[in-house]
Design a protein around this nucleic acid. Structure first.
Lengths: 157, 157
DNA sequence: TGACTCAGTCTTGTTTCAAGACTTAGTTGA
DNA sequence: TCAACTAAGTCTTGAAACAAGACTGAGTCA
């Protein structure tokens, strides 16, 4: 299976991974969430090969996750900003970060803390149910085929 | 930067990606959350190269995300099950799935629905604040260095 | 005995990635 | 006016990862 094939799978995870499922793309998005916007800054912060960065940014722009807009005309220079669609990835990224905090932070603790401006406290992401508002555990979830389901038995999620 | 280098970054996202940050690993975990446990089943469901599957399963076992346990002795056969650490990835995976549902489901709708057993309803994952319990928007979050922070300015999360 | 199952390993060719030099268009300072 | 510098790339080369599928080995089943 190739990257392009992934997006044709009848599975929302596969389709998501077709867009953001390589390590560089997620690190690019990390930088974007930390307000990095310019090619040179992404490149310097990540140490990513320039060619790969060019390609990843173009892909994210094509998918509408980032928007490329000029910030000066002569010479033409661009910046890459998260779109609403891109901002929608925040819960996923935060969950990944917090999992890393739980299992791979050194003894000193996590390198970065997140503060909820509304309440002013450092917080951890909590997965809750949109229906009842309670915290959701993995074991408390069962899946069933949705309207877009294909033949295949369990998968497709 | 190589895969191994990622785990040495002072960034919880990078460390997480060093474990689960390639497309195959996340698809393997999708299958695991759908109760797939055996090599042949992972291979058949995913169409992954056997060599790659061998390597990914071994890596996940090494990292404690999956546990490899015998289910019969002669001939020796093993199954791969999510550990508690592995179950801890559920919020992240669900967030990725729901993002895919939002942006890449066909017109029929998402291929798979998730039901919260506690309340009996199909639900969507909602990111809430562990401190105040309110829903968290990306724009309502600000970051600051934590106890494990290194020199570098913004990054590290 | 022969076909079959499971969990791999091995081989070969293709694709992607890493590293870093080079390019282009314009700006700044001496 | 020349040199150095900046931003955003492109190009080249060698290394690593991946895809596809044949093969292996231990044991079961008919």
């Amino acid at each position: 299976m190739r990257w392009e094939d992934l997006s044709r799978e009848n599975c929302s995870l596969a389709r998501t991974l077709a867009v953001i499922g390589d390590r560089w793309t997620l690190l690019v998005l990390r930088e974007a969430f930390l307000k990095v916007r310019r090619f040179e800054d992404f490149q310097a912060n990540l140490g990513i090969a320039r060619q790969v960065l060019t390609e990843r940014l173009a892909h994210l722009v094509e998918e509408g996750v980032l928007a490329k807009t000029p910030y000066q005309d002569r010479p033409p220079r661009f910046e890459y900003r998260l779109t609403e669609k891109g901002l929608g990835l925040y819960p996923a990224i935060l969950a990944l970060v917090h999992w890393g905090d739980d299992h791979y932070a050194g003894r000193k603790g996590p390198p970065l803390l997140h503060r909820h401006k509304n309440c002013g406290h450092d917080f951890r992401s909590v997965l809750t149910c949109s229906a009842c508002g309670e915290t959701v555990e993995a074991r408390a979830v069962e899946t069933h085929p949705g309207p877009g389901a294909a033949r295949r038995k369990g998968a497709g999620g």
